[in-house]
Design a binder for these strands. Structure first.
Lengths: 369, 369
DNA sequence: GTGAAAGCGCTAACAT
DNA sequence: ATGTTAGCGCTTTCAC
């Protein structure tokens, strides 16, 4: 029934086919520039003829590169490390059993479900594949998970990590500096850290929203901001307030949500109760803007006629809104690709300095403002 | 500046610390049951003391297991294979350059962004990690990509593949049987194939929707179905029609969308134009249901008062609807976990037969029906 | 510029 | 039941 897979060709096979030695082929393949064009061509042919694909294992073991990058979704780490029982030896056992283990494994997640994560994965994957590299998906919720990720990297099972924190108080980033491990973060870490990252210019994005609202004639503008312990939230709020102040609106009412649709709805309700005459709202993300839209409709306000609404992110939610959401676009895929490039650069050239790449947001005008 | 990472301990180190041989430690770690408890304990200690983490590379090279599973998002494969130019030697080069390559890389993406994919990734990742295994993210859009994935697996860079097709005419699944490669699909393949898969009972799910609509008093019911070349769409339509027929409604108007919000809006418009008196709509997924809700609101129909609406999937869109969507829940995370389990089982025991696991959907009653 | 040879860390025969 | 040994496929000195 189950056919045996014929062993796939090795470097040795390619070498034989090309009439060269293993090492020569290896060198050519690894991009050592200066080589007899004839040799290069011979190798190229032999590779094509044999259908050679390098063994990640062999390569990892010999060189010190795996061509693998950990794509880590990292949480708060406040879940208690769970009990060590007779047949569960914590890191040791888990690290150890590829496939053998049984484990209660009753931990929770749902992290990847955020459509935002999908966009990051897109950007990362498509960039990596062009480099012949691949992302390993990992989620790190508990403190134990964080240690595991660290050990995994230290062991050289991946060349570096792309970190996406889901909480402001994620402790994982802080564990990286000093280890010699390579990592790049998506978004500036909550506390300053010697780590490279990519981010979007939140303040500028918020300013874009402010100017658009003002330009379309809004005069009583408020904002629904995100949780204030998240740098991005603070920056968007500050950027919005500053831009408004610059235009002669020193006081901007704000109420905080937590980036969910529900919280946006609730925030909008509070806003309308306190400031019934608002005519413009900037929400710190699309989901909250969508929530605000729902509240506005419930209360019989027309959008954008009575109240104009601007969101942030340009996520899929923006298109699911009616009216469709005018929003500040964060170029997630590009940012993810750049983050990946930065990581690979550092892997190739470890002496490269820590860096931050900040992307310009753009205003996407649709119907809501 | 950049600290050197101290080499992480190897099996040898653990063996020394435990006063045992490498192989004994290896065996204990790999779960060979019968062992002197004292030995087991010694190993446990030594692992903990040294902070040992196995090398994926070493293990892969020696055994024939990598502990890696490819999570493949596979598309239509109809994108033309792109040109081979001087510095781009197709599979050969790409397969070859871990990090060296330059590539125009103007290929397509957006596949991971579907929130549905995130749920799959969640289920897969959380199951795998309990087995000490990890998913490698891959997307395969072009025919070249499909070949690459195949070669990658054949090379043993991963132990098997979890296939998620994004198109009905995805040719990748058909390339697996006969290769001896291990793979499990999410959703039944469009054409019958000797491949294991998980799926949800579409007909039963649709029947749930039909019965709910009928039970709440709807008498002029219609459905917005998905593209008819997709098995899931056909099954949902058939299941809905059958259930309605069983209840004395042999004729059920239907109009097809393509699973997008826009298509749902448009479909609902056509439906209302042709059958102005509908009082119940079943949409084959939540996004189309959301679209239908928008159209209904535009046309001044109250939901669920004038028209009741039921969706399918219980995706995040269901909660973003107002009224919130009554829908048929597909247990995606569970299905993904089970798919993973099936794959690991086959990897461990290749003589296991092809199998299909069909999950029961459940009706989630919210406000729209 | 190219080949020969020595491992990288691990598992699986093969001893014992 | 446990130790010894031979590679797995590759990169990288080291010779030439």
């Amino acid at each position: 029934m189950s056919e045996l897979l014929q062993p796939s060709p090795t470097l040795e096979d390619v070498a034989r086919a090309a009439g060269l030695s293993r090492s020569t082929v290896s060198r050519v393949l690894n991009g050592s520039r200066d080589f007899d064009p004839a040799v290069r061509e011979a190798v190229r042919r032999a590779v094509a003829a044999t259908g050679y694909v390098p063994s990640v294992a062999g390569r990892s073991l010999a060189g010190r590169r795996t061509g693998m990058v950990a794509l880590v979704l990292s949480g708060a780490g406040d879940t208690p490390v769970y009990e060590t029982s007779a047949n569960d030896t914590a890191v040791g056992d888990r690290a150890t059993d590829a496939y053998g283990a049984e484990d209660d494994g009753s931990r929770r997640r749902a992290v990847f479900s955020d459509p935002f994560f999908g966009r990051v994965a897109d950007g990362v994957t498509s960039f990596l594949r062009r480099q012949g590299a691949h992302p390993i998906l990992m989620s790190a919720e508990t403190a134990e998970d964080h240690q595991y990720v660290l050990a995994y990297l230290r062991r050289g099972n991946a060349d570096g990590a792309l970190l996406v924190s889901t909480h402001a108080d994620d402790p994982l980033p802080a564990l990286i500096p000093g280890t010699g491990l390579h990592a790049v973060m998506y978004a500036r870490p909550a506390r300053p850290l010697p780590l490279s990252y990519v981010d979007v210019a939140h303040r500028e994005g918020a300013a874009l929203a402010a100017e658009h609202l003002l330009a379309r004639g809004c005069r009583r503008v408020a904002t629904i901001c995100g949780p204030l312990d998240v740098p991005a939230s603070r920056d968007r709020l500050a950027g919005f307030q500053e831009a408004m102040a610059r235009r002669g609106h020193p006081y901007v009412p704000f109420v905080a949500g937590n980036f969910t649709l529900d919280s946006g709805e609730a925030a909008a309700r509070r806003l309308l109760a306190e400031f019934p005459d608002v005519d413009g709202v900037f929400a710190a993300n699309d989901l909250m803007a969508q929530g605000a839209l729902l509240t506005l409709r419930d209360q019989g306000r027309r959008v954008p006629g009575d109240v104009a609404v601007v969101g942030f992110d340009d996520s899929s939610a923006a298109l699911a809104c009616r009216p469709m959401l005018t929003t500040v676009r964060q170029p997630v895929e590009e940012m993810a690709a750049e983050m990946t490039r930065m990581l690979l650069d550092r892997i190739r050239t470890p002496e490269l300095p820590i860096a931050a790449r900040i992307f310009d947001p753009v205003l996407v005008v649709r119907q809501s403002a």
